[in-house]
């Protein structure tokens, strides 16, 4: 039966483990649909394709745990950028110490160091799946980085991206609603 062969081919859109568990049942259900419906009607195939397009990507994303992988990569990047930020702040301190330093400048660099240390802590918290601790650390790091930048304009573009843009992006990702994902959206 050609219709069933087409449907079996479409099943490749689903993750292999899902296909292994439910593929046979899905083919049986499709066979029932063919028996009770009009296989030659375009509407029948529109519904079949729409069902695959609607359900397969979500199951693939769930199977590869895309969100978890993304958060792990983001956490490692955060730790690395935080470490580079600490090194950059120390280098800034050494460069600045060659001439008389104002209190504002010293305070700005110290705040910058603290901001990046807390950012490293946020990365570690994300890796250990401590979402609440990570959010708190990111907010503290963001406030310190902004304060350091406002006190004295010493941060380069990369340091501003790591100290300000990265915590904002991670906070959005950590506050993104994930509750409905347990039972899907269909």
């Amino acid at each position: 039966m050609i219709a069933e062969r087409i449907y079996r081919f479409l099943l490749h859109a689903y993750p292999p483990e899902f296909r292994a568990k439910y593929g046979r049942e899905m083919v049986l259900v499709f066979r029932d649909q063919c028996r009770d419906g009009d296989v030659r009607a375009p509407g029948f195939w529109v519904r079949v394709f729409w069902d695959v397009v609607r359900s397969a990507p979500a199951l693939r994303a769930h199977a590869t745990q895309t969100v978890e992988v993304f958060m792990k990569i983001a956490a490692v990047v955060t730790v690395l950028l935080g470490a580079f930020g600490i090194l950059g702040s120390v280098r800034e301190w050494i460069a600045g110490s060659r001439q008389p330093m104002s209190t504002t400048y010293v305070l700005a660099v110290v705040l910058g160091v603290f901001a990046f240390v807390v950012l490293v802590g946020a990365g570690v918290a994300i890796l250990r799946q401590r979402r609440h601790g990570a959010r708190l650390a990111l907010v503290v790091s963001l406030v310190l980085a902004i304060a350091a930048r406002l006190l004295f304009p010493w941060m380069g573009i990369l340091a501003q991206l790591a100290g300000i843009a990265l915590p904002v992006g991670l906070l959005i990702a950590l506050y993104w609603p994930s509750k409905s994902s347990t039972l899907g959206t269909a």
């Binding site: 049942e25 519904r47 069902d51 359900s55 269909a186």
Partner: peptide, 18 residues
Amino acid sequence: VRLGPGTLYGALKRLLEA
């Protein structure tokens, strides 16, 4: 509401896991 096999078994999989 017309469920296709993909939507049905995707939902059943999540319901079984939960």
